[in-house]
Design a protein around this nucleic acid. Structure first.
Lengths: 194, 194
DNA sequence: CACATGTCCTTCGCATGCAAATGACTTGGT
DNA sequence: ACCAAGTCATTTGCATGCGAAGGACATGTG
């Protein structure tokens, strides 16, 4: 047993604590959404993606919102019970369930609040653009490293500090822009990683 | 409805997606812990804190691991069933439940794996120190902004980019060091925020 | 065409995780 | 000393959230 304090352990403990705190905050916000809006966070996220993607299979939807198929079934059941989506069988492949957002669902979406706490949104908006990107980049980086199971050839974290080059595209293989361009342009083409 | 793309919305969507992905990864890791170790993430985190704090009340424990009292009850019930902790009534205040880690619990803790995925730990360790701190800082910042309900006097996010000054101590009121000093020193005195 | 294998969704069992209600106890005011 | 109000833990009810198993369907190989 090491007598001297282990800095690395402390770092990890703090990261774990932050994540726990973050997860709880998301959960609490989800409950507030229920009171003020009638839908939970996962339900709203699912409905949004269903609307964005158009008629889509349940499994594709599950992948998009990062949920298991089992969980998606429950979410869809509740959304369907509210009349916001409709489930139908796929024509080509009759195993698949096609999810379609109803008129009612569209209407609700147009009145839907953000999935992020207002406090956070305000603070985020007041940040410099490079800070916003850095925040997003860090989150994506962490999510990538934690979720990717074992993609063997997974590109390891570059240890040498090539400064802020990486922040614009953390897991995207595309070339990273060195010049400042509008946020929208840099955010536009997202292949899939987040 | 705005025709031109809204960069801010995209940013928020990506942040939400990253967080969902991160939360799922944490959940999946927790399930892997059950298979390989026998305890879930929340159970292990609770046990670790119980050991670190010594005999402690259930409510204090709940605050430390960022869980509600109701949830803590369930966690403790399962830990107690395994024989890793013991519940006893407080001497001074008989309402409180004092949690004590047993020998068996200590033993299990000594063999416990990290709450973070190995992949992530390795990657984190290979980062430059300033990058580690920046990552932690960003997480703490996000957690703070999302969880603090309304602490009225909550220090708002500084909009002007005072560069990296803030990364060393995001929510800590202490003076931020401008010179590079050992990681351990900077991590040492944590008043409570994370 | 038949069958093994695989995929898609649902169901089942379990562990979080929360709020609200409840019971036990403490504390402050009178 | 008494009682109102607050605090601590538990119980209850619900919504995630997962894996495993099961049923329906698809696809490739013989």
């Amino acid at each position: 047993m090491p007598v001297e304090p282990n800095p690395a352990l402390d770092l990890e403990d703090r990261i774990v604590a932050s994540i726990r705190r973050l997860m709880r905050a998301v959960d609490l916000h989800s409950r507030r959404l229920v009171d003020e809006f009638g839908l939970t966070g996962p339900q709203l996220a699912t409905l949004q993606e269903a609307a964005r993607l158009g008629p889509v299979s349940a499994s594709a939807l599950a992948r998009t919102v990062h949920l298991s198929g089992a969980t998606m079934t429950g979410i869809l059941t509740r959304l369907e019970k509210r009349g916001y989506v409709v489930r139908s069988r796929g024509a080509a492949d009759r195993r698949t369930v096609i999810v379609t957002v109803t008129e009612s669902g569209q209407g609700v979406l147009s009145r839907a609040p953000s999935l992020l706490q207002d406090r956070f949104r305000v603070a985020l908006g007041s940040l410099e653009e490079w800070e916003q990107l850095m925040m997003l980049s860090n989150l994506q980086r962490i999510a990538s490293l934690m979720d990717a199971e074992e993609l063997d050839a997974a590109p390891h974290l570059v240890a040498d500090a090539r400064a802020f080059d990486q922040y614009a595209s953390p897991s995207e293989p595309a070339a990273s822009p060195r010049v400042v361009m509008p946020l929208a342009d840099r955010l536009a083409p997202d292949p899939s990683p987040n």
